[in-house]
């Protein structure tokens, strides 16, 4: 299979079926829910996921902004091919009705109809040792993206300040980002870095904790605090408002405490493509 076909397949996989970890978290939320309306909403969500997978239909009509995170070895030989293949496969996926034309000119609103425009599809590079590459496909919906926030906190506000900022933002977002949501947090860095590591944190499977205990503990504490908001499924109240919290961090300027917050909807659609140095490809979810 060539790389363009593989990316096309990965987009289709991401759009039509959610990863197992996400399905399991929603199923457990359904089982634990005591609020009747939220339980019925979770039931519809599970029915929808099964139906979309069976019929190979988009789970949600908002097929998102096509976002690609590339973890690429310094010696990986096919960087240019991958960039070209991403753009070509996104246009093709639109043409085949796998995704909605979701990229418009910000001034005129004009829709070119192929999901390709200035800086879009969005590719974020992360270089590391090695000669292989991993491509993370993350179609990101608009409703959840609109709940993103950047807090430039005072360092004196500390970790308590971070917790309050996150609780406040999740309450502000309410039902709009299609809860139960997943919260990606980027602590430290600068304004830009905190936001990008927050979004990257969403690539981690649900239930998988950060490798450092102090960060993992904060993830669990925030998860507990956020579920006390009782936003519930689609804002109808109940036990589960947030499925998981994923935190990444970077060193910060002594005068700044940036907190990037990126929200993902329950339809946490992802796919992973591994490419080795010989060009062999594999799609996973």
């Amino acid at each position: 299979m060539n790389i363009e076909e593989t990316i096309l397949e990965a987009i289709r996989t991401a759009e039509t079926s959610i990863p197992y970890d996400v399905f399991e978290h929603i199923r457990v939320a359904y089982e634990n829910e005591t609020n009747e309306v939220s339980k019925s909403q979770l039931n519809s969500i599970l029915d929808n996921v099964k139906y979309a997978k069976e019929k190979k239909l988009p789970i949600c009509q908002d097929t998102g902004t096509q976002t690609f995170f590339l973890d690429v070895g310094y010696d990986f030989p096919y960087k240019k091919e991958i960039v070209n293949a991403i753009t070509a496969s996104v246009a093709k996926a639109t043409n085949l009705y796998y995704i909605r034309p979701n990229a418009v000119d910000p001034f005129t609103g004009k829709n070119p109809g192929n999901n390709v425009g200035r800086f879009i599809p969005y590719i974020n590079w992360f270089l590391r040792e090695g000669n292989d590459a991993t491509i993370y496909v993350l179609p990101k919906g608009g409703g959840s993206e609109n709940a993103s926030a950047l807090g430039m906190l005072k360092p004196g506000e500390g970790i308590k300040g971070i917790k309050k900022f996150v609780v406040d933002q999740v309450i502000k977002a309410g039902a709009n980002p299609c809860p139960p949501i997943i919260v990606g947090l980027g602590i430290g860095g600068g304004s830009d870095l905190s936001m990008i590591i927050a979004k990257r944190a969403l690539l981690r499977p649900l239930g998988q904790r950060h490798e450092e205990k102090r960060v993992a503990d904060l993830e669990l504490e925030l998860l507990d605090l956020l579920n006390k908001t009782e936003v519930g499924t689609m804002g109808w109240g109940g036990r589960t408002s947030v499925l998981d919290v994923h935190i990444e961090y970077a060193y910060r300027h002594p005068a700044s405490l940036p907190v990037g917050l990126v929200v993902q909807c329950w339809a946490d659609r992802r796919a992973i493509i591994k490419v080795d140095s010989s060009g062999k490809v594999e799609v996973k979810q």
């Binding site: 519809s44 969500i45 139906y51 239909l57 789970i59 949600c60 009509q61 908002d62 919906g141 039902a175």
Partner: peptide, 13 residues
């Protein structure tokens, strides 16, 4: 009135 957010395939039915 509200319909379940994200349940796009089901709504299309």
């Amino acid at each position: 009135a509200t319909y379940t957010g994200g349940a796009g395939a089901l709504a299309a039915k």
